[in-house]
Design a protein around this nucleic acid. Structure first.
Lengths: 360, 360
DNA sequence: GTGGCTGATGTTTGCGTAAACATCGTGGCG
DNA sequence: CGCCACGATGTTTACGCAAACATCAGCCAC
């Protein structure tokens, strides 16, 4: 029937792909077996209407028999998109980043997108710039950046023009689309909780200075105290680690008037608990401690930690939504989306030793 | 000169890629600007010898001017490989998986490979099979599975024939290439440490039954005790979480003769510490506790936890090495590689209350 | 000087897919 | 009866790159 030339392979059988010696069925193979053109296979493969049901079944049967899988490289080349989202992270050692990443991967999968991980070894501007530069030849359609974004200074880092970017943990909402936990609201909830218990003021065990999240938690803490007309004790700083929390805790334990501490994350709160314990200051009887994150272990600290729950899953979900919206050019291109926190009451907070105003 | 048709764009300028409206320079654009053929551009791009230095410089200049980036889809289609490693994980909620993943990503990047994350929502055989099936149309050359591998039962899961697989945390060394921490050796070190301190026997707070790692730690614990001629107390089980460790700890605290506990991971050890504390059993004076993993917080527990350090970075590195070796068809295709652990002595272990044999 | 060799470069081709366009039969309708 | 619309399917083409092959100049040896 058909003309002599054309797609007929050397032996009419499934072709042996070059390179790895693997065997792969292409659309042409399926088409041959089903007795249709490869275009019809393509239509079936992509679920287009306008294919006779009978033909469809034949094609599907042929696909199954040959174990046909669309070749994503060819598809990407043709369509000009990869169905892949890149995620740039500096570190996976913080709970938040990991949980966010996991949520991103899950949400992306639900949308039919894969996730490619782009680790940046050292968070220097150069490294980040390098990552963004490499990005352009990477097979991604969009990028989500989970990082302190001082490094994303628009002046020095050139973003690939066609790649959509969403950022977590930044205040660069005017330049990028940002999704983040409501650091400020959460912090104010924490401080207010302690003030309501009767504490005269609240100390702050802050995260590192170069972190936006830490900065905003510190700012909100200061704001909450100021609004309530309370004095603001000096800030003690850690680097997010439990170890640094311990050292900071030794300092705080020495402060006689310190009856309440807001730790910028749970890990530091853990170290703080140990320091207070060592120095004989009981929690919560002598000192109340509140954390931030609600890591899974927080309920097993000594004592179980009252903390602010971050909904990382939601953050991840919104990141994916936002980046897909940007790609599809609908919805707002910029601005910040905040995910609320939730106060989780456990056993590390109580009224101050003298007995403050009781609520119940 | 050339025939009328051909690569000449509508206006001889950088083409506007369809789909996203983005602007991309192709090899042809670079070639036109540099006044060479696209093949020469390809040679320069791939660093082949046999290109005149002067020509090379011209091409490089043209590349730079146009901001040329090779299109990875086209490259993958042509070469038949993606330079991408897929990583299948069930959960990122355990430290080990995350740290391993991070190491894999870093090592892969160093080898010029990207990492695509393939989360499996629920660890059922069906889900895993689905993941492996989807895999074939995913843009990966090889796969690393970070998972309890009961689910990788060869009878039910068909692995894509051309995709190389390396598995973490499994005893399926005869079927797959496996890289793992030396669970057994680590466990024996832990048990021996406690016996050396003078404890008559060691209780075991085990991980979930369906985990290979947990199983092997339990087996090694039993073996070590048996070899030393000590009785083996009944196993208490948790699910890796601190919460489960707490509940198990309440049980253990009730055992009068329990002076030493080997917890299968640090999180459970944390919960155990809390339970012991609540029940008035001091650590390490009354009960010694040893963990497994050496998570960053372990040094900040109350008391700081003696534990076995796992070198996740090395595990990740070896995974990448192994999978690349498999792809390149050199080196052993199967077998198990073990990464040794290291005992980290902190404050949670001591001789038993009665005072055992002292070492120093 | 002629043939063959080497190094540098150009030309052709095809990877697997899917958009755009072409074809072909069928059935409705003036 | 003839024309057109329409649904179903086939054919052509191009996505960007790189292997394979072709070309071509310069040079050496005999």
């Amino acid at each position: 029937m058909g003309p002599a030339g054309g797609a007929q392979g050397p032996d009419g059988a499934v072709r042996r792909a070059r390179g790895r010696g693997r065997t792969t069925a292409s659309m042409a193979d399926v088409a041959r077996l089903a007795g249709v053109s490869s275009q019809t296979v393509s239509r079936v493969s992509n679920g287009y209407a306008g294919v006779n049901e009978e033909t469809r079944q034949q094609v599907l049967a042929a696909m199954k028999e040959l174990g046909y899988r669309p070749n994503s490289a060819a598809r990407a080349l043709k369509r000009g998109e990869f169905r892949t989202i890149g995620v740039i992270t500096f570190t996976l050692s913080t709970t938040g980043n990991v949980r966010t990443l996991e949520a991103i991967a899950t949400s992306a999968a639900a949308e039919g997108y894969a996730v490619t991980l782009l680790p940046v070894a050292v968070p220097t501007t150069d490294e980040v710039r390098g990552a963004f530069s490499r990005l352009e030849e990477l097979a991604v359609d969009a990028v989500i950046v989970i990082m302190e974004v001082h490094l994303l200074d628009a002046a020095t880092v050139t973003l690939p023009p066609h790649v959509q970017v969403v950022v977590v943990d930044s205040d660069a909402g005017s330049h990028y689309t940002v999704v983040d936990t409501d650091q400020s609201g959460g912090t104010r909830t924490a401080v207010q909780h302690l003030l309501d218990l009767g504490h005269l003021t609240v100390y702050h065990l802050a995260g590192p200075e170069d972190s936006f999240a830490a900065q905003r938690r510190a700012d909100a803490w200061r704001g909450a105290l100021t609004d309530a007309g309370r004095p603001t004790p000096p800030v003690v700083r850690g680097d997010w680690s439990a170890e640094s929390g311990y050292h900071a805790g030794l300092e705080l334990a020495a402060q006689e008037d310190c009856t309440a501490v807001f730790a910028a994350n749970d890990q530091m709160a853990l170290g703080l608990l140990r320091a207070l314990h060592e120095r004989g200051r009981r929690v919560p009887e002598d000192v109340s401690v509140i954390g931030f994150d609600d890591i899974p272990e927080a309920g097993s600290f000594l004592p179980p930690l009252t903390t602010l729950h971050q909904d990382f899953a939601e953050v991840g979900r919104l990141c994916v939504q936002a980046v897909l919206r940007k790609m599809r050019r609908d919805g707002p291109q910029r601005g910040t989306t905040l995910v609320p926190t939730r106060l989780v009451l456990r056993d590390s907070t109580a009224p101050p030793p003298g007995g403050g105003r009781r609520e119940s």
